[in-house]
Design a protein around this nucleic acid. Structure first.
Lengths: 217, 217
DNA sequence: CGCACGCTTGAAGCGCGTCAAAAAAGGTGG
DNA sequence: CCACCTTTTTTGACGCGCTTCAAGCGTGCG
């Protein structure tokens, strides 16, 4: 069990610009200028006013929630090009934090409730993603979860031969409902089985794609 | 581990009416006549064409997915008055089955992609619900999951003094990422601790609401 | 009645968590 | 570039919560 203090973060350090909330426009929300966040900086917290959402120009973001005793669940990771921050309620339910230095473009949802079809698709995709996350956490073993996670990350970064993990092992553990020790052990296991190679601590190369796929039930 | 055959179901037995798909209308989707499903009947399956969604007139529905070796994850339960079946893709990703005799009103999504604000809210709410489900499965103990589940069911049925669980223990187990034996044991534990009373096997009375709430971290 | 199905209960095992410590990786300042 | 500190990651030993396996019980229905 990790302590809550382990997650203490600084509020958006020296954003390049204030996050303006502009008037709504017709059609897809108008884009604004880019705000940057340092690694660990909080983007929003539970209770913060929602309504603005974000597109990632560069960097990576984690969405998570804390239980009162410090247990943490990471709900989602978002990478460059992805969008996050839309909520059912008027306030946010989760924390959003930059994992690494990150640039965000704030988009405002049309206030006239003329919901754009684009936003609906994003919401539906977010729901599907969350539902598949439930399946993974609810019914898969540690090896299956990590294999699936690595394949997902590889795919979202363009299916490159190798890719970087912006998040720490602890982030991964809290995303997969495991402990950091288990994550580390499974990485070691996959490495020694020749399925992956760790070019560096955060850079993964998938050596046996099909074998890794076969691990995901 | 349960076998896949345990979940074999009959296709919609003797629906009272064929499920007509009508032309789209402006605003919120037009309601159609009610189709009934027997307990265990399949409403849709992965790969089925999506686009129509459903409002529950009476009964209860489970949304789930199977892994190749028979492991099952129930993604959601839906009760009378609730809506389900909207998808990000053109086809469904999950199974939907009636848990008990159920009446559904089919609603068709406007084809002109003039996404209605109502549908967006439903999608966002669905996403939030799925995200809280992730938290529960990823970071809570068996007792916490069951306590939270019972409180959720009580609330959704109007916060009555007592309420019926339409689903079996196996459904609950597969929803919470547990086994049927663990579910049964935790029920017994909560009962002997005086937190709940089982009026019958499927009828639960919450005796100590606050104590139950305090179990949910 | 007697079978079928859902549920409960017990005993044993295992996967993952917990606790502890060391090793590796990243800063930071000189 | 190196010394020093902090943070992250790895590794080992052990324990516990949940699963697995196996009966047994209750209830409804042909």
């Amino acid at each position: 069990m990790q302590t809550a203090t382990a997650y203490a973060t600084d509020r958006a350090l020296a954003p390049s610009q204030p996050m303006a909330i502009s008037s709504p426009t017709a059609g897809f929300p108008r884009s604004h200028s880019v705000t940057t966040f340092n690694a660990g900086a909080e983007i929003y917290a539970p209770g913060d006013k929602a309504g603005t959402f974000f597109q990632i120009e560069f960097g990576a973001v984690r969405i998570h929630r804390l239980l009162s005793d410090g247990r943490r669940q990471v709900i989602a990771f978002h990478l460059a090009g992805e969008t996050f921050g839309f909520e059912a309620d008027r306030t946010h339910s989760f924390f959003a934090e930059a994992i690494i230095p990150t640039g965000l473009r704030a988009l405002s949802r049309p206030a006239n409730d003329q919901a754009s079809p684009e936003l609906l698709v994003l919401a539906l995709r977010g729901m599907l993603r969350a539902q598949e996350h439930i399946l993974m956490i609810g019914r898969q073993t540690a090896v299956e979860r990590i294999s699936g996670f690595l394949l997902d990350m590889a795919e979202r970064q363009g299916g490159l031969e190798y890719f970087d993990l912006p998040m720490t092992r602890l982030d991964i553990a809290d995303y997969l409902g495991l402990t950091i020790e288990t994550v580390s052990r499974v990485f070691a296991k996959l490495r020694s089985a020749g399925l992956i190679k760790l070019r560096s601590i955060r850079c993964v190369e998938i050596k046996k794609l099909e074998a890794l796929r076969s691990h995901c039930a």
